[in-house]
């Protein structure tokens, strides 16, 4: 085979369209995962030992099985489950599947952030008679979340790279488009190279940005960087 620059430039605009779908899907999955991540944190703190234990095992189960299996389950198997089964559009199934999978990772990130907040912060909030909601919103989360932003960002990049899995249940995004083009024209190398390049172009600067954020948030409460003197 020979490398064909003509094909290369021809597929760029085509795959660029798919790029937007990939980005959109990543963002949708990620938002779902961020919100649902809090759900796992919340249920783990339910006073009832049995309930929190059950949910902990569900989360553990989701975390330890491959996301591809979960996607297939949600898309192909769930519609056949009596009563609760529904057929989902591939896009929605992808958001649920990947979002759910990553929510279990994000919940661990949240948990580590929350546990890193000193016990004295809870006690001072109690001594000042703050309500439970006020403690979380004003004291704990504002300290727990900023240090985890680099980790959250890392998961965003990892998720971005996992999103092509959605093509297996028929979400037509970058990879799927490249593959279709390949099948039609019997040219795979150029379109797939373009896909790889697009991933690189987005992932690498994001990774740089995250390491910047990492530095910024690690210094956040330091004397020198606070400029509001």
């Amino acid at each position: 085979m020979t490398w064909d620059w003509g094909v290369f430039f021809e597929v760029i605009p085509l795959i660029f369209k798919g790029l937007w779908i990939t980005i959109g899907l990543t963002i949708a999955c990620y938002l779902f995962a961020m919100i649902f991540g809090f759900f796992w944190v919340f249920v783990a703190r339910i006073p009832s030992k049995t309930i929190s234990w059950i949910f902990r095992w569900i989360a553990e189960f989701i975390r330890s099985t491959p996301p591809l299996v979960q996607l297939f389950f949600i898309f192909y198997a769930w519609p056949m489950v009596p009563v609760v089964g529904v057929t989902l559009n591939p896009f929605v199934a992808a958001i649920l599947g990947l979002g759910l999978h990553f929510s279990t990772y994000l919940s661990e990130v949240y948990r580590s952030g929350i546990e890193s907040v000193d016990k004295g912060q809870w006690e001072a909030s109690t001594a000042l008679n703050l309500s439970t909601k006020q403690k979380w919103l004003k004291i704990i989360l504002p300290q727990a979340i900023p240090p985890t932003i680099p980790m959250l960002g890392n998961y965003l990049i990892i998720m971005f790279k996992e999103v092509p899995l959605a093509s297996t249940i028929g979400v037509v995004a970058m990879l799927h488009m490249a593959n279709d083009y390949g099948a039609q024209h019997w040219k795979y190398v150029e379109p797939l190279t373009v896909v790889a390049l697009f991933f690189l172009l987005l992932s690498y600067p994001s990774a740089l940005l995250i390491s910047k954020l990492e530095k910024k948030y690690n210094r956040r409460f330091d004397k020198k960087t606070i400029s509001t003197l």
Binding site: G120, Q121, E123, A124, A127, I139, F221
Partner: peptide
């Protein structure tokens, strides 16, 4: 009606 001052201050750093 109760207030407390702690050994390690426990100020809110943010």
């Amino acid at each position: 009606d109760i207030g407390m001052v702690f050994q390690h201050f426990n100020l809110f750093p943010h």
